[in-house]
Design a protein around this nucleic acid. Structure first.
Lengths: 211, 211
DNA sequence: TAAGATACTGACCGACCGGTCGGTCAGAAA
DNA sequence: TTTCTGACCGACCGGTCGGTCAGTATCTTA
């Protein structure tokens, strides 16, 4: 029986159901607002059974985040290619980063919650920071390459450019619903347009001036 | 007895102490993670006394947010002036917006939590959205003026520019601690420098090209 | 088929939650 | 002095929380 050979060993169907239910609930309502009873009911198992498979509520949460993280980076890494103008690569990265967030919004919310979230809640921060950090480092590298090639302004801090780009995406993702209420904003439901406008401004700001 | 005549009527010292304690705890740990007992202890009153002054935990939270909101917009409105180049006005706004957030980080976190926060938690959203929206509208107006004056590119959506600027600030504010861990980032503790670099890129991206 | 591991359950625990209750007490009004 | 009021308190309510446990069903293996 040939398996994709991904996850650590394997997952019983029950465990998978628990993880799925927990992921859904945690990312929609947060850690505190979800009880083990909720998860048990949603997964169709007894609460005690969850404690049979996971040491504690914290451990379950950690497993959920770990599960979610594993996919996240891969998706973006696949999209990397060395050829083509840097501006195109940046636009690709930005567009896909935002698209990924929106498509997997539950997972994104979950990871974001860890990174941005409460002060006292250091549950899976390290884990989430790693994912986040990998994306960030990848982006910084693209910018550096662009600077070496003379396509981008050399006087900029590449980490600043990366922060700006990722920040713009994250902010859009997390305040989508609020932006919708603002009369001046008409792009809140059009992420592709947002991405295009973002890159329009950003590229104009970081492109090396013509000699 | 001449009073500053600000706040609704006035506040007994006890109520003020409760509000202060609640604000501190709510903004540091969030709504769910704070119990009325915590607040009572921090304020040095009995829990029952809190319920004497506030109808419910929700009502207390609402009062805290209302209290926090009232100052927030004023601070930025005072900084507006009609004269001077738009680029300077934008830089001022951005710099002060970030500085305000950082200086009043508890209040900021509280309001941000309402705007960005959990899905099920619509406690004081309207209230917070109003504050947020006012800042946003103010900024859009500045950008529009710049476009009319020909200082800024006319082909840009002013709301997009505002989103980018506020988003950059919000993202910096909320991920400060994470950014600190990234080896490529050396500006996480220097908001002024961040603001300068931000405006450097942004202005280059939105300034009207010379004729 | 017997034995033993593993998956799973319902009943249950102490802690703590938001909120209420009966009552005390200082001071203003009469 | 008496009456009334509102701030304030300790004790307590029903309910939910994360977590435990004794026991049953199911599967594996010899």
């Amino acid at each position: 029986m040939p398996q994709p050979a991904a996850q650590p060993p394997q997952q019983s169907e029950t465990v998978a159901r628990i993880l799925a239910a927990a992921e859904e609930l945690f990312s929609r309502r947060g850690f505190d607002a979800v009880s083990m009873n909720d998860i048990a009911e949603a997964a169709g198992v007894s609460k005690a059974n969850i404690f049979h498979h996971f040491e504690s509520k914290n451990a379950l949460y950690l497993a959920v985040v770990r599960n979610a993280c594993s996919d996240s980076v891969e998706r973006l890494q696949q999209l990397q290619h060395e050829d083509g103008a840097i501006s195109g690569q940046l636009a690709d990265f930005a567009g896909n980063h935002l698209k990924n967030m929106l498509e997997h919004d539950q997972v994104s919310r979950l990871i974001l919650r860890e990174i941005v979230g409460e002060e006292g809640a250091r549950r899976a921060q390290e884990l989430a920071e790693k994912v986040f950090g990998q994306n960030f480092a990848m982006l910084v590298e693209i910018v550096r390459t662009g600077q070496r090639r003379g396509e981008l302004r050399a006087d900029l801090d590449p980490a600043m450019v990366a922060t700006l780009l990722i920040g713009a995406n994250v902010f859009f993702f997390e305040s989508q619903e609020v932006l919708r209420h603002f009369k001046d904003v008409d792009f809140a439901r059009e992420p592709e347009r947002y991405s295009r406008m973002l890159m329009d401004i950003l590229l104009a700001g970081i492109r090396a001036p013509k000699p």
